[in-house]
Design a binder for these strands. Structure first.
Lengths: 393, 393
DNA sequence: CCAGTGGATGTTTACGTAAACATTGCCCAG
DNA sequence: CTGGGCAATGTTTACGTAAACATCCACTGG
């Protein structure tokens, strides 16, 4: 049912259009008052679209649309008197600037795209939150690009969808190796900042100082008197896992200890549990540094099931400091990551790159902080061969 | 340094503009090849903006821009031959449709706004993820509206920022009572769907069936033989908490049991711990239904510290089934929420409302599912007064 | 053989905004 | 009292796309 013929009513003040349904929400009388936006000549009927435009406001306020634009953008050169009139007209008509038109004219969307494996980890989410908040403060919106599975193909897909997306710049929260042959498909001039990764030579990167955090964790355990520290690492494909593991090994070596064999997990509590079952069998294992809190949780459960007391028999340190960590059994000593700061720096970085395209790549590290709770203690007295390097009582 | 005078070079094929910086990323020779988009007449110098436009593609392909549009949108009426030429030209120029212009022309942004307290709970995040994924499948992008603190003011602020935002519809993941006097500031015609709430009379709501889930949890404990079930509830302000608590009370009453006094938490593990300390003192408490897994976690810790064995002395059921729940000590019996489905239905709902504005409000409930693990068991044999209503062994 | 038909393609125009330029009118210095 | 200058405001135009309409041309059937 098209309403043609409306076209002839040139100059008519109100061209009543076909309104398909409610639109007036709860109880508003339908079609009672056509909310402007239709008073232009030759308005097509079929669209209840958009509210008032600048032209509408201008007409009501008795000024030109340019003056409305000036008021809308807070530009100078408008009398207080005129400004008041325009604002009144805006309020009356419920005027909202049309961001599409704005973006088209200005050549920018004031929107940041964020690519991430949506829920992959709590850390990513906190980073995302901080990004959204910082961006909002700078007047930018954030558009989410979820990547279902962490494969090259999926990532590539996300990037090409991005091409059609209304974003001025992109923040990628992702292990970098998936990014490799992908940046090519980015629209030119779209800046990228990567979180949770390395490769600062090819991208601008913001990340937690994994190495420093891992060092602190291992040192803490050594300082308590443990001979050495076992490591429950994250998956091989992860740079973060890799760097935490390397830092663990280096710290031990520097302290003159021999690193025990590395135990591999996949970040999940379940994998931590499996690893814990194995570690419970190692008589000499008195201290474990888990690469994240979830794995530490599983580890605690396994050790507990096998009758190893924590921290009396075995000390455990995690990484991340998820909110639940303080309520683990016992409360977990862990390395706190400042995800909010990472997110904030991502936004700051990408914005600065946009304004000053010449900036060099580089890596910004956010320092983590060791939070000591109750899952760590000095090692139990050695039962076998008291002759060892221990000088204890 | 403005480059004027370019203006005179009307018709010149390449008007070389001032390029401020890198833009060519890694090692590209700067300014080597002006990437089109500047070949229009009267191009202002100062902006390296955007790549090729339809007009550019049309020129290269030797067709009109309208034909390019047809190819770009997959419309019929283009020879295979012509289509190929256009596609080739697109590839050559790296053409990307300008979504601002598209949005302006079509009157829709193909973008959904999501308002949420960003990280408030894992559930919200999973919902958000599902929303983003479903939306992507439908060709919609998702813009995030973070609300820092859950106050009326903040929420109001988010909604008014929304007014200027390029979204066609909004999904709110939030306790509804904060929404009350707020919807007014929504641009007309923008549909809303609310998750995680009730009030289906005023909004279209999608939510987990809180009542059913709570019922299942309580019944499970009663079926195991417990006399009654204690409840560790969420904060008073939360509708979800309220409805879980009501369902708990109703289920008990229906079964002819007397509900013990309600214990109040605030969703956090810490509050669960505090509550657990109190409950550990209650000799008759053999079964607790916690309103979420985090509180259950704290509860477990407190009970454990007080020497109450789980599930031998006390059974515990949670709500949510967070990924870690399976690794609690012991693995937690809990009510699994299908957040992905909630998110999916939010998108489906809002899209359907957009296409058919007349739809009535209403509530869609997603059924949860009780996952039985190892934190529940029959109650310990009664030590006092064997004469009670128990018909024991 | 030619009008008619319909598919392929081109041309015009509008979407709402804001930059650039044009105009108005008022005040003050010469 | 007069013209220069400036502040306030108006007019024109372009941003990139796509709907609506116009044109062209090859083929078909009478």
């Amino acid at each position: 049912m098209r309403i043609a013929g409306v076209k002839e009513s040139i100059g008519t003040e109100i061209a009543r259009a076909a309104r398909p349904g409610g639109e007036g929400q709860v109880g508003a009388v339908d079609g009672e008052r056509e909310p402007v936006g239709t008073s232009r000549t030759r308005k097509r009927a079929a669209r209840p679209r958009q509210g008032a435009s600048m032209a509408d406001v201008a007409r009501v306020a008795g000024v030109s649309s340019q003056t409305v634009s000036r008021v809308s953008n807070g530009f100078p050169g408008v009398t207080e008197e005129t400004r008041r009139q325009v604002l009144a007209a805006m309020r009356e008509l419920g005027y909202r600037p049309n961001s599409a038109a704005r973006a088209l004219k200005r050549g920018e969307f004031r929107t940041l795209g964020v690519i991430t494996f949506s829920l992959s980890s709590m850390g990513n989410i906190r980073t995302l939150e901080a990004i959204a908040t910082s961006a909002a403060r700078e007047g930018y919106a954030v558009t989410l690009l979820p990547v279902a599975v962490p494969t090259q193909d999926e990532v590539h897909g996300a990037f090409s969808r991005l091409g059609e997306l209304a974003v001025d710049a992109v923040i990628v929260i992702m292990e970098i190796h998936l990014l490799d042959a992908v940046t090519v498909s980015l629209p030119p001039g779209v800046q990228v900042v990567v979180a949770d990764s390395d490769a600062g030579d090819r991208y601008t990167v913001v990340d937690t100082d994994q190495v420093g955090g891992a060092r602190d964790a291992v040192r803490h355990l050594l300082d308590l008197g443990h001979d050495t520290v076992w490591h429950l690492a994250g998956p091989e494909g992860s740079f973060a896992a890799q760097r935490r593991a390397n830092a663990w090994r280096d710290t031990l070596t520097e302290a003159g200890r021999v690193p025990p064999p590395l135990v591999r997990g996949d970040w999940s509590a379940e994998s931590g549990y499996r690893a814990g079952l194995r570690l419970a069998g190692e008589q000499h294992c008195t201290a474990v540094f888990a690469a994240n809190d979830q794995m530490a949780l599983g580890l605690l459960r396994a050790l507990h099931e096998r009758g190893r007391r924590i921290p009396d028999d075995v000390s455990v340190v995690g990484f991340d400091d998820i909110p639940e960590a303080a309520s683990f059994l016992p409360p977990l000593t862990t390395v706190h990551q400042d995800f909010a700061e990472v997110g904030r720096l991502c936004v700051a970085g990408v914005l600065s790159k946009m304004r000053n395209a010449g900036t060099e790549h580089g890596t910004t590290l956010v320092p983590p902080r060791l939070v000591v709770r109750h899952s760590t203690a000095p090692p139990p007295p050695r039962e076998d061969a008291r002759a060892g390097q221990v000088q204890g009582p």
